[in-house]
Simulated assay, not measured.
Amino acid sequence: MVKRVGQKKRGNPSRKTKKIILMGTEGSNQTERKYFSMFNKLQNEYRILFSKGNNTDPVGVVNDLLKGAKKEELDLKHGDALACFIDVDFKSGREKELREAIKLAKKKNVDLYLSNPCFEIWYLLHFRYSTKSYCSNDEVIKELSAYIQDYSKSKDVFGLIIGNLETAMKNTKKLEDYHFENGTLDAIKKIPSTEVYKIVDKIIQNSSD
């Protein structure tokens, strides 16, 4: 019999056990962690946790997440999930690393969400729709700073953007349609793009304020 994750950690056994989404991010990056941790205050279906590890290469991030899943005794067959966030970025040799990570994630039932070139595309889509082909992460952050003053990757922006979530979902899906209509189906080649909306949609579909 598979042990249900958290039975010994979640306290009162009479209370309905929450499903866990264990998330993995690159290195010491706080951007995704600060954003997604806030959903714990808004919803009751999932409990969002984060794996430990300082890997910055995509395969390493996936492996750190798998180690965390084992430690937390996740039960993927009964609603727990693994979510990994990777920036496509502009680093040399990045495409090969990404394809290896995608292959590993698929094999290990990890949901891998790419942002191209970086996670801040998701934030930017809360304010505007654009198909601009960015040349650097800094270029994205510079544009985002026009909407979020003094933006930095460690800044907690959840409260500043949550009111625009519906706009972000519409803009992101519109961007997906744009790439599809132009024949760009490979997530690594879609710029700009982000798959973050998929996990956000999963969370909010099972939430209550």
Score class of each variant (00 low, 15 high):
Val2Asp: 03
Lys3Val: 09
Gly6Asp: 09
Gln7Trp: 07
Gln7Gly: 02
Gly11Tyr: 02
Gly11Leu: 01
Pro13Lys: 01
Ser14Trp: 12
Ser14Ala: 11
Lys16Met: 10
Thr17Met: 11
Lys18Leu: 13
Lys18Ile: 05
Lys19Phe: 02
Met23Asn: 02
Gly24Cys: 11
Ser28Leu: 12
Asn29His: 13
Thr31Ile: 08
Glu32Tyr: 03
Arg33Glu: 14
Arg33Ile: 14
Tyr35Phe: 15
Tyr35Glu: 10
Ser37Phe: 06
Met38Tyr: 01
Met38Asn: 09
Lys41Val: 03
Gln43Met: 09
Glu45Cys: 12
Tyr46Asn: 04
Arg47Asp: 12
Arg47Pro: 09
Leu49Phe: 11
Leu49Pro: 12
Lys52Asn: 14
Lys52Ala: 13
Gly53Cys: 12
Asn54Ile: 10
Asn54Ala: 13
Thr56Val: 15
Gly60Cys: 13
Gly60Trp: 04
Val61Cys: 04
Asp64Asn: 15
Asp64Ala: 11
Leu65Thr: 10
Leu65Trp: 00
Lys67Leu: 13
Ala69Gln: 07
Ala69His: 01
Lys71Ser: 10
Lys71Pro: 02
Glu72Tyr: 04
Leu74Arg: 04
Leu74Ala: 05
Asp75Cys: 14
Leu76Gln: 02
Ala81Ser: 14
Leu82Met: 04
Ala83Val: 11
Cys84Arg: 00
Cys84Gln: 01
Asp87Asn: 14
Glu97His: 15
Leu98Cys: 05
Glu100Ala: 05
Ala105Val: 08
Lys108Tyr: 08
Asn109Ser: 01
Val110Gly: 03
Val110His: 02
Val110Asn: 02
Tyr113Thr: 06
Ser115Pro: 06
Asn116Gly: 00
Asn116Glu: 01
Phe119Glu: 02
Ile121Arg: 10
Ile121Thr: 08
Trp122Ile: 07
Tyr123Ile: 08
Leu124Val: 06
Phe127Cys: 06
Phe127Met: 06
Ser130Arg: 03
Lys132Tyr: 12
Lys132Gly: 04
Tyr134Val: 04
Cys135Met: 10
Cys135Gln: 14
Cys135Ala: 12
Ser136Gly: 07
Asn137Ser: 13
Glu139Ile: 03
Ile141Phe: 08
Ile141Asn: 05
Lys142Phe: 07
Glu143Ser: 03
Glu143Cys: 00
Ala146His: 13
Tyr147Pro: 01
Gln149Cys: 08
Tyr151Asn: 09
Ser152Phe: 07
Lys155His: 06
Lys155Trp: 04
Phe158Trp: 01
Gly159Lys: 11
Gly159Trp: 06
Leu160Ala: 12
Ile161Ser: 03
Ile161Glu: 01
Ile162Glu: 03
Leu165Met: 14
Leu165His: 15
Met169Lys: 15
Met169Val: 13
Met169Leu: 15
Lys170Pro: 13
Asn171Phe: 12
Lys173Met: 15
Lys174Ser: 14
Lys174Thr: 12
Asp177Val: 02
Asp177Glu: 14
Phe180Glu: 14
Phe180Gln: 11
Glu181Ala: 15
Leu185Thr: 01
Ala187Lys: 05
Ala187Trp: 10
Lys189Asn: 12
Lys190Val: 00
Ser193Gly: 06
Val196His: 07
Ile199Gln: 01
Ile199Glu: 00
Val200Arg: 12
Lys202His: 07
Ile203Ser: 00
Ile204Glu: 02
Gln205Gly: 15
Asn206Asp: 00
Ser208Ile: 10
